[in-house]
């Protein structure tokens, strides 16, 4: 077998593995969220399908696939059909640059455990996360319903506002690691994770990530009690399912970004790197679920004020301070 073919096969194998793991994980994250939320509200949660309700995701998928795929008469048909795919695909693509383990040594070759290690990985992540807006915005607009449009306009302005502070919170990390590549950022945290080295950037990033994932307390785009379902009000069947799965894939992606940038990625004692990475990502996801179970929703003006008047100045200040400290140390 020639070398280019081998590397192509490796990339394909990694792609398929990552794809499978992410989709399965997203499906079971839905179950985990329902279970955890139920326990927090003194209920049992889904427990009928299979042992402990473990087959519930499968049943959900079958239900969604067999439901009618309804398109409203006044909707912009093509955009309406494309939008859910957009939101799921942009979420999936982001995982291409996430390093989920230390490089493996197999047959005398080093196999990096990342689909592709771009040297502009951070920018790739930011670019895709800003493209992720389109799925929601177009879905809401194409539905041609007032609730959907309101949801997507809210979502647009919210995501644009919080993207700024999210990007600026990563700038100190890039400055300290001196690289845009996610693998090198993880390598640079071998001794101390950036959570301890830069304690201000971590909460800023975490809050912005929470806002990016459109979950409580930042779920204004789909606020159920004001907007029915927000941008996905008019969707049914598997297209709604795509929005739904996209949201959970997004959750995993953002959790792994928090892990990569601040929690030291795959580094950790005793256990193998991949296990540490998975544990940290799942811990962040569990934190998000916990937040959802215990926080009320923000009001819209509070959301905007917090983003522009608190988070953005803080993150700018953090960039300045980090730069000054780095300059002083060198």
């Amino acid at each position: 077998m020639t070398d280019p073919l081998l590397s192509l096969a490796l990339i394909l194998a990694k792609l398929i593995a990552v794809f499978g793991v992410i989709l399965t994980l997203a499906a079971y994250l839905v179950l985990a969220e329902r279970k955890l939320l139920a326990r927090m509200q003194l209920r049992y949660g889904p427990n009928r399908v299979g042992p402990f309700g473990m087959m519930q995701p499968l049943a959900d998928v079958i239900k969604l696939l067999t439901k009618e795929d309804f398109v409203p008469a006044t909707a912009d048909k093509w955009l309406f059909l494309i939008a859910p795919g957009l939101s799921a695909v942009t979420a999936l693509l982001t995982f291409a640059v996430v390093p989920f383990g230390p490089p493996l040594e197999i047959f005398g070759k080093t196999l990096p455990l990342v689909v592709i290690d771009l040297n502009v990985g951070v920018l790739y992540f930011l670019g895709l996360s800003s493209l992720a807006v389109y799925g929601m915005a177009l879905g809401g607009w194409a539905s041609n319903s007032k609730y959907s449009l309101l949801g997507s306009i809210r979502g647009l302005s919210q995501l644009i506002s919080y993207e700024l502070s999210m990007g600026l919170a990563i700038v100190p990390v890039v400055m300290m690691a001196r690289s845009f590549s996610l693998t090198e950022i993880v390598m640079a945290q071998e001794k101390i994770p950036y959570l301890l080295l830069n304690p201000l950037a971590f909460p800023i990033f975490l809050i912005s990530v929470l806002a990016e994932s459109k979950r409580i307390p930042f779920d204004l785009p789909e606020a159920e009690n004001e907007l029915v379902g927000g941008f996905h009000t008019e969707y049914s069947g598997m297209r709604f399912g795509l929005f739904f799965v996209g949201e959970y894939i997004n959750l995993i992606i953002l959790g792994s970004m928090v892990t990569v940038f601040f929690l030291g990625g795959w580094h950790g004692p005793w256990l193998p790197g991949v296990v540490w990475f998975a544990l940290k990502v799942l811990a962040i996801c569990a934190f998000f679920i916990w937040v959802r179970g215990s926080m009320p929703r923000l009001r819209y003006d509070q959301l905007m004020h917090f983003g522009w008047k608190v988070l953005l100045p803080l993150s700018l200040l953090n960039v300045l301070v980090t730069g000054a400290v780095l300059l002083g140390m060198s």
Binding site: L123, G127, L128, S130, V133, A137
Partner: peptide, 17 residues
């Protein structure tokens, strides 16, 4: 990356908004 981030991700989103 900057092309996608700035033009497709920020400016066009604002225009669509």
């Amino acid at each position: 990356a900057v092309q996608i981030m700035v033009y497709a991700g920020a400016i066009m989103v604002l225009i669509i908004f």
